[in-house]
């Protein structure tokens, strides 16, 4: 496997998300999921996180949002240590998991109200944003029904709406396009760009190379828990020393 240590160091700079020498293992240290990972994401950036199954993407994202505790290392969001001051970090971050986590016995609007309440979203802003996002995601007819009655894609949309409702400065998304229909996926990509143009930051994992290639300002490739490449599309192409597609670069770096 090729290592790209100099380019990894090139990921530092002004940053909103900062992981320093983060490691995480499971099964009493037998399985190393994330191995001494150092990564930074800049303000207003869309950062794509790529890697094969089991590479450590979800584990990394979960550590950033506080679902998992790193064994070693430091994670900071806007300079706030997520372990030392989790509440402050959570106040500015929202998370969309790979499988929609929702309270199925609540209606869509009740769930959104709950999220609005816990993030302290003012009523007027809440009305405006809910109206906007349920329009974008075509949830207007569903929002007063129990989430239990939603399809998988609709559940994913309500989770995305909930994540957007507090207008977070940082969004962390795990495979956000899975389960969405083409129209919603297209709108979500637009929305990502709009979100980041407001100076907000977005970190997401994906398996869809085309999305990562077209949408991301920078891409990090993780393999066996280690960041093996990180940079803009151009920088990654330089690493491969050819005009390859991201898919080819990915296959080459992760050993096919």
């Amino acid at each position: 496997m090729r290592e790209f240590a100099p380019e990894i160091r090139g990921c530092s700079g002004d940053h909103v998300i900062e992981l320093t020498n983060v490691s995480k293992s499971y099964n009493r240290g037998k399985v190393k999921a994330v191995d001494n990972l150092t990564l930074t994401v800049k303000p207003g950036e869309i950062f794509g996180f790529l890697g094969p199954n089991g590479a450590g993407k979800t584990t990394t994202l979960k550590m950033i949002v506080g679902l998992l505790r790193p064994d070693t290392g430091r994670i900071a969001v806007e300079g706030i240590d997520v372990l030392a001051d989790p509440l402050q970090a959570k106040q500015i971050t929202t998370y969309v998991p790979d499988f929609p986590a929702v309270y199925e016995r609540l209606t869509g609007i009740e769930f959104l109200n709950f999220i609005g309440d816990v993030y302290g979203v003012p009523r007027q802003a809440r009305i405006e944003r809910i109206n906007k996002w349920i329009g974008v995601f075509e949830l207007a007819t569903a929002v007063s029904n129990p989430i239990q009655s939603y399809s998988h894609g609709m559940k994913q949309k309500i989770v995305l709406t909930a994540a957007l409702l507090p207008a977070p400065r940082v969004m962390v998304l795990d495979e956000p396009l899975i389960g969405l229909d083409p129209r919603a996926a297209y709108q979500l990509k637009d929305l990502f760009r709009e979100h980041c143009e407001e100076g907000k930051t977005l970190l997401f994992s994906t398996h869809i190379m085309e999305v990562a290639e077209k949408l991301c300002d920078r891409i990090g490739i993780i393999h066996k828990g280690r960041l093996i490449a990180c940079g803009t599309m151009e920088e990654l192409r330089t690493l491969g020393q050819t005009e390859q597609s991201l898919e080819n670069i990915f296959l080459e770096l992760t050993g096919k």
Partner: peptide
């Protein structure tokens, strides 16, 4: 109808 269903903001404890 939607506006009426949108709550005016509860405290965290109340929301939970």
């Amino acid at each position: 109808e939607l506006s009426r269903q949108i709550s005016s903001g509860r405290r965290g404890v109340t929301a939970i």
